[in-house]
Design a binder for these strands. Structure first.
Lengths: 206, 206
DNA sequence: ATACATTTGTACCAATCGATCTAAAAGTCG
DNA sequence: CGACTTTTAGATCGATTGGTACAAATGTAT
């Protein structure tokens, strides 16, 4: 049995992407139904919106999932054991910077900037996937340093958690700088500086 | 001639502080008049609010000024030429971390988190003082590195702007980590790691 | 052709947004 | 006391918030 009934006038998948861009730009609560409806398929009506997505919150969840499966993958190298740990860290930083500064979508990272999207405790569950993603990214940095120590690349006395937090805090800050309009080249140069943090912990005698 | 007319039932200065805490926690647009009125002097009426502060935007401006003159001073060391540049940078980072994690007020920095407070361009002017403050802090970091190079403490080949951006991005990221509930001790340890970025650029031969 | 399934547009819902009007209340002055 | 000044409380403003009811429109299946 194929699909029945009157067909949609808009592409549902494209609509999720358009919604993702709006939520990315303005956050959950600051994005209104009017904005969403106006930007989906060149404008849709209220009942069409609710028939297709259920509610604003459900659409947000879909938008977040869409983001996590696409743009957020720039940090996937942190969990790739095929990549040398130093390369994994540098790749995550450089790919994330490039993504956050490129045109065609809002600046910065939706996960990082989502920190301010849930002001009230009763709305915290809405952005929980974003919170979990930030926690996971921090874990990824720590994991890379731990892996390097275990491999003998970094000194045993290196503090994996502190180094991981340093890389992670730098990464989170990029979202704010990108929103403020900083060039990708400037950020890239600062990554080169930051990576020296890794190099000075490398075991000297080979 | 002394003050005339019916006296206020609330302390205007305390009210600005309470409003600052609300704006700090939820941002400009996400803080409603109802919240402000309910939290000022144990609850005030609408006309009392407008008689005392003019409008929501004017109160926000006062709250921002209050923040900049108090909490934001944790980074003042960046412009104090009496302090050795390395100490100035480390002081700014440690004082800011301590402030952002201490109890008695919302976590994180109002200036950094204010990035998400102005979604629409027509509200950008409201948070302009916050944007300017972030720009000023970045300049402060760069200035310290430049001062160290001029003093001969850091190598001439050191990239002042890139290093400044690295310190600044790390600092901005702290707001997000603090909001996520990270301990001040963890952040402090990561500052110790980050400061190695400075030490490796120090001119070796004394 | 007719029954069925789904989306569509129009109108509407209560609640809240920031802000204002009016008038009583509560002080300081002469 | 009475004139003056300011703040107070209650009612209300139009606009917007997220979300529904209802019926016409448009497709597929039999």
């Amino acid at each position: 049995m194929a699909k029945m009934g009157r067909p949609r006038t808009f592409d549902r998948q494209k609509a999720v992407v358009q919604a993702m861009h709006l939520f990315w730009e303005h956050g959950y609560e600051m994005t209104s139904l009017s904005q969403l409806k106006a930007n989906i398929g060149g404008g849709i009506s209220t009942p069409s919106f609710y028939a297709a997505f259920g509610s604003k919150e459900e659409l947000f969840n879909e938008a977040v999932q869409c983001y996590l499966e696409t743009y957020a993958c720039v940090t996937d190298s942190l969990w790739d054991d095929e990549i040398p740990p130093r390369d994994a860290v540098e790749l995550a930083l450089r790919r994330s910077t490039k993504m956050q500064c490129e045109s065609g979508h809002p600046k910065g990272c939706m996960v990082s900037l989502g920190t301010m999207s849930a002001p009230t405790p009763e709305l915290a569950h809405v952005v929980e996937p974003l919170t979990a993603s930030r926690s996971r990214t921090l874990q990824g940095f720590v994991r890379c340093v731990e892996r390097a120590i275990a491999m003998g690349e970094l000194a045993k006395k290196a503090n994996a958690r502190s180094m991981g937090i340093a890389f992670n805090s730098f990464l989170q800050g990029i979202s704010i700088l990108a929103r403020d309009g900083m060039d990708a080249a400037d950020l890239d140069a600062s990554i080169t500086e930051l990576m020296k943090l890794w190099d000075i912990e490398v075991c000297q005698p080979k």
